[in-house]
Design a binder for these strands. Structure first.
Lengths: 197, 197
DNA sequence: GTCTATAAATGGATAGAC
DNA sequence: GTCTATCCATTTATAGAC
């Protein structure tokens, strides 16, 4: 889909093409079921070109992971911009994540569900990554200003976002009857009831 | 830990030993980072013995996965036995899963967090496995008898258990200050507020 | 900067002795 | 039923031409 016919890209464009192709294959088959050879073929480039842009397979995956975490972090920041109050922000974050799950399922599959520590052993767990910390902070601020009950911060965050994250998994596993966004209002309402003051 | 010194087991005992060792290694390093050779060495048995009991590496993993799903399913059934009402049952399930996470982290790591479809391509997603269906049913029954609001069934289930499952991930990732069971009451209280009638 | 060809190693699986 | 030895395919990564 992203890669249709390949007009023999070079340089930075080739690099981006490799990353896009790797995301396709990693999210579809997993990191370990995807060989450099697979990426080579699907991207229409040579082995040498890949190894010119990335030190090795792990570095390629790390580069991809970092760039997607950054994208998610920015998406969250954008979603919160202009929103006032904890509930409004939480709702905006979940809405954004739901629509991303529908529009860019490969990204969410790769970022949320993959077990990165298996192939990026030096990376911290996903829960301490920037986007997840940002979500936690939104809820913690809600506690500070009295919108949210005085809960243990982790509990408050997992109550607010745990259900939504599982709904995203269900969507990616294809078990939901309707598109994820149809469930937005009810998901947010349920989660908010759990933590509101 | 499970495998300390090996009194040269045979037959069914050897088979169990291989499964236990595989669970250790799979949950610690992941399926793809664990070779048959690794299992061979750690279990103190020969390659031939492994291939006598299991058709191949995938069949070994599948056997392990099935047995652990069954264990979890029985644990949930046990937890619910004698409990009356949706809330009591949900609480018992979460309590059981929390204590299992502390006592048998390798099991929960392997069952909950691993991406089985990467190496068991024919298995259905975890959300349609028996233990997860059982959790969903407990909540659905709560809707039927009026304890729980009239919510979309998936939303009700993910609201009730989504936060708890994420807390389990946090425990397994080692980011919590206190043992998981310390958070039980508050986690259940928050989730229940989200769905109660 | 990109290519082809190939080196080097790993790992799943089998054969055949005991 | 278990063992050792080994085969063979796959895959990561490099060398060197263009």
């Amino acid at each position: 889909m992203t890669v249709s016919h390949r007009p023999q890209l070079r340089g930075e464009e080739l690099r981006e093409n490799v990353l896009n192709t790797a995301l396709d294959l990693f999210s579809e088959k997993g990191y370990f079921n995807t060989s450099i050879h697979d990426i080579r073929c699907a991207a229409g480039v040579s082995t040498g070109a890949i190894y010119h842009h990335f030190q090795n397979k792990e570095a390629l995956a790390k580069s991809l992971y970092m760039s997607l975490l950054l994208q998610m972090d920015q998406a969250i920041e954008d979603a919160c911009r202009g929103k006032d109050g904890c509930m409004e922000r939480c709702r905006a974050i979940i809405e954004k994540m739901f629509s991303l799950t529908l529009e860019q399922p490969r990204i969410m599959q790769f970022v949320l569900l993959a077990q990165h520590r298996e192939y990026l052993p030096d990376e911290p767990p996903i829960c301490s990554s920037k986007p997840f910390q940002a979500m936690k902070k939104v809820v913690a601020d809600g506690i500070t200003n009295g919108e949210v009950r005085e809960l243990e911060p982790w509990i408050a965050a997992t109550t607010m976002f745990g259900g939504a994250l599982r709904m995203m998994s269900l969507q990616l596993d294809g078990v939901l009857d309707n598109p994820l966004t149809d469930y937005l209002d009810e998901v947010v309402e349920c989660a908010w009831r759990g933590i509101k003051a």
